[in-house]
Nucleic acid binder design. Structure first.
Lengths: 226, 226
DNA sequence: TGGTTTCTTGACGCTTTCTTGACACCCTGC
DNA sequence: GCAGGGTGTCAAGAAAGCGTCAAGAAACCA
């Protein structure tokens, strides 16, 4: 199976690697393993993981050094695992480019939650309570949508779709991304998305047949014009 | 003083607010304060902080609830501070949209380091990897292709081909490599590649008969000029 | 509970995109 | 000149993707 997200686990202890392998595979990840820093760097090149879980104490190279080297060309999120609790170690690792730092022993649930955080952060968006483009205005703090100064009534689903689109305004959102963010995981029914986009356009667009706000990227997804 | 980054500190204990205020001001931040959830939401609207430091135990509203409400329209990074060490609390907060979770007592150095992490991610997310040669511009984060500042509409296949070419700009890509990366293994039909290259050139090149961007290496493959 | 809104699903027609075949072209060598 | 491999262009049919309508199911709200 090649569907899951790729995660690289770097630790010199076989038992920990095996444990994480099992835990992450159960969550649907594709897990790769490396036992030292050199192996880790090669594995990143070979497998292009979307996330790296890295132990600080490696036989050949310090985990901080691995982080620094990776950051020379890669932005892949790195979560550090370590037995070292000293604040100086944490600061050094985070400033070297790590995205998070957990001290062993750690809870699997917390690790997974923090993995979700760094991955969520990968997609960036706008940051204004009020968004507007053309004659479309969306006030998130009041949950209000206006076109030509006229208030538009949206259903929860429609509002959700619009919210996601606005938060990534200008960027193409794939069908999958929209489905996952609006309907949750496990949805892959494009049709339901098409219907809702259609309804949304019927409410927003002056001429729904020639959309000016919600643009279709055929075969890929949708994009909100900016 | 309007130069520093704006940080909102939300905590019901005056002593902690005062302490963080001093520590962060010393680092050059502009610090705003709120004592409960309602105040916090208003303060975000009023001051547009770039970062929020939020205590979980608030008198009027749970910190997780504040996080959830903020996340309905704001992407501003949130770092949770809490005395609660239970894994369930951490997971709930992180999944509600928080970016980090520190348990009190915490080291000021670690807090500052973690603030740097979330802000670093914020910035790196914004600077988009854009490729350009001559009058051709490819913005991968937006899946946008421009020639002479004019937006070009590409089909998924065309975009894929261009993406592969750009990723190896300057180098010759053999027919086989392109076929495999765009159509997957088991494809060896050069004709389909030629047709798609032709269509791509028709959209990109000023004079498709004399291509300036996508160069043909006879008998070998194609190369993107840099 | 009944009535209303909202969501989901299916059917259908339309548009875009992909693939394939036909053919002209440009070299190079004979 | 002409044969032949590699290449570029055009057009047409096939396939996939998309938008709309409508009806039933589900959720919501007095």
């Amino acid at each position: 199976m090649e569907t899951g997200q790729r995660v690289l686990v770097v630790d010199d202890e076989t038992s920990i690697r095996r444990y994480l392998h099992a835990a992450l595979t159960a969550q649907g990840f594709n897990v790769y393993e490396a036992a030292d820093g050199g192996e880790a760097l090669n594995a990143v090149l070979a497998h292009r993981p979307e996330l790296i879980i890295l132990d600080l104490g490696l036989p050949d190279m310090d985990g901080i050094e691995v982080t620094r080297r990776l950051r020379e060309w890669s932005q892949t999120p790195i979560i550090i695992l370590s037995v070292r609790e000293a604040e100086q170690d944490k600061i050094a690792a985070l400033d070297a480019g790590a995205d998070d730092y957990l001290t062993k022993p750690f809870g699997t649930g917390e690790l997974l939650a923090r993995m979700r955080v760094v991955q969520r952060r990968q997609v960036t968006g706008l940051n204004e309570p009020v968004f507007s483009t053309g004659n479309l205005r969306v006030d998130f703090s009041r949950r209000l949508v206006k076109v030509d100064e006229k208030e538009i009534q949206l259903t929860p689903t429609e509002y959700d779709i619009l919210r996601i689109l606005v938060m990534h305004a200008g960027k193409v959102l794939t069908h999958r991304q929209l489905l996952r963010q609006v309907w949750g995981d496990g949805y892959d029914d494009m049709h339901i998305l098409r219907v809702n986009i259609s309804n949304l356009r019927a409410k927003l667009e002056p001429d729904p047949a020639r959309p000016t706000y919600i643009h279709t990227e055929a075969g890929v997804g949708y994009r909100l014009k900016v």
